Computed example of a mutant assay.
Amino acid sequence: MENNLWSNIVQVRNASPLVHSITNYVVMNTTANAVLAIGASPIMAHAKSEVEEMVNISNSLVINIGTIDEYWEEAMLLAAKKANELHKPWILDPVGAGASSFRDSALSKILSFNPTVIRGNASEIIALSKTSNTITKGVDSTAQSNEAIEAAKILAQNHKSIICISGETDIIINETQEIHLKNGDPMMTKVTGLGCTATALIGSFIGVIENKTDAVVSAMSLLGIAGEIAAEQSAGPGSLQLNIIDKLYNITEDEFYNHLKMVKQ
């Protein structure tokens, strides 16, 4: 796998997959710019009258429930159903899972279409699997990544999905593998929407990379390494956000492999 990660990054740059995102108001600009920086092409559409057509022409779908309301819930369900029917890869970001009964109800419906990938913080993954009474702190996690491993395994088994737990250590789990990535920088937690950015990047990679687990690992390692390098030249969260976008765009193979910290369990 490790030897394929950079070639996957190059493949995304060359293929420029079209990524349909139904995401939240807070992060639309940031995630669209990140998707463009890695060479993919974002389309941000959530109207019920067009989401099915957008799924049809796209390589992949991103569903992020950060600012979900009743209208967006319907649009998300239409898009997820269409992606499922067309066998298009798609990713679910269960922002704030466990924070309200409305979110949990919407997520239960969306999950019925079995996402290719689910990416969330530890609290969200635990809440989504219903393995405990863990409460989310808004969109922030109250648990560490390793505390969500068993919950992730349950989700992977129940939905045949690849689960990505974001945190100080990013953990990617499918039905047979567990991969830990230890890149990134603590300052990244001070920039809103970087978790959502991770989801958008995964959405880009799964659109063109055949091995979806490799796609998730490639996307997460790319963002973690870009953040790690960018933090070295950033005075604070504001410049970090800009520098991450730049590094996603201009990162080299040597930079990538010199910083990669990956452990297979």
Rank of each mutant, 00 (worst) to 15 (best):
W6A: 03
V12D: 10
A15E: 14
L18Q: 09
V26A: 13
T30K: 13
A32Y: 10
A40V: 02
M54N: 06
V55S: 02
I57Y: 07
N59R: 11
L61Q: 06
V62P: 00
V62D: 03
I63D: 03
I63G: 08
N64V: 09
I68A: 11
E70W: 06
E73T: 13
A83N: 05
L92N: 08
P94Q: 08
A97C: 12
S100C: 12
F102L: 11
D104F: 12
N114F: 12
T116M: 07
I118C: 08
I125P: 10
A127V: 03
I135R: 15
S141Y: 02
A143I: 01
N146I: 15
N146Q: 13
E147N: 07
E150I: 04
A152V: 07
A156Y: 03
Q157A: 13
N158G: 03
D170H: 02
E178K: 15
M188Y: 04
L194S: 04
C196K: 11
I202V: 15
G203D: 09
E210W: 01
K212P: 00
V217M: 00
S218I: 01
E232R: 13
S234T: 07
S234G: 05
L242H: 06
N250E: 15
I251W: 04
Y257F: 15
L260K: 03
K264R: 14
Q265S: 12
